[in-house]
Simulated assay, not measured.
Amino acid sequence: MISKLSHIHPDAKLGEQITVEPFTTIHENVEIGDGTWIGSNVTIYPGARIGKGCKIFPGAVISAIPQDLKFQGEVSLAEIGDNTTIRECVTINRGTLDKKTTKIGNSCLVMAYVHIAHDCIINNNVIIANTVQVAGHVTIDDWAFVGGSSAIHQFVKIGTHSMISGGSLVRKDVPPYTKAAREPLSYAGVNSLGLRRRGFTSETINQIQEVYRYLFLNSLNNSRALEEIEINLPATKERDEIVNFIRSSERGVMKGYIQ
Results as ranks from 00 to 15, higher is better:
211 V>S: 04
40 S>Y: 12
223 S>G: 07
156 V>Y: 07
68 D>P: 02
102 T>S: 08
83 N>G: 06
26 I>S: 02
11 D>H: 10
59 G>N: 15
14 L>C: 03
79 E>P: 08
196 R>I: 01
164 I>T: 05
190 V>N: 10
41 N>Y: 13
24 T>L: 09
188 A>R: 07
158 I>C: 00
51 G>N: 11
179 K>S: 00
104 I>V: 05
159 G>D: 01
192 S>P: 02
257 Y>C: 07
118 H>V: 07
21 E>T: 04
10 P>V: 15
63 S>T: 04
130 N>V: 03
211 V>P: 01
176 P>I: 05
218 N>R: 13
64 A>N: 15
5 L>Q: 14
251 R>L: 02
240 D>S: 02
30 V>A: 08
229 I>D: 13
149 S>H: 09
15 G>Y: 08
70 K>Q: 14
235 A>R: 15
116 I>P: 01
6 S>R: 09
96 T>M: 01
159 G>Q: 00
152 I>D: 14
67 Q>R: 07
52 K>M: 15
75 V>E: 14
214 Y>A: 06
102 T>Y: 04
232 N>D: 15
54 C>N: 11
107 S>Y: 08
150 S>C: 10
208 I>S: 01
158 I>H: 02
62 I>E: 11
76 S>F: 02
16 E>G: 04
112 A>L: 10
123 N>Q: 13
116 I>K: 12
251 R>G: 00
36 T>R: 11
88 E>Y: 14
221 N>C: 11
105 G>F: 10
120 C>Y: 04
92 I>V: 05
11 D>T: 06
214 Y>N: 09
107 S>C: 09
2 I>E: 03
174 V>T: 02
253 V>S: 01
71 F>H: 07
11 D>C: 12
254 M>L: 13
213 R>Q: 06
52 K>T: 12
57 F>W: 08
248 S>A: 03
165 S>V: 04
139 T>I: 08
231 I>Q: 15
70 K>G: 06
190 V>T: 06
224 R>Y: 13
43 T>K: 12
26 I>Y: 08
246 I>P: 00
30 V>P: 08
252 G>M: 02
55 K>F: 06
24 T>V: 12
84 T>V: 05
141 D>F: 04
190 V>C: 01
125 N>Q: 06
106 N>M: 09
27 H>Y: 14
43 T>Q: 12
81 G>A: 10
118 H>S: 04
48 A>W: 02
53 G>W: 06
242 I>Y: 00
132 V>M: 13
59 G>V: 15
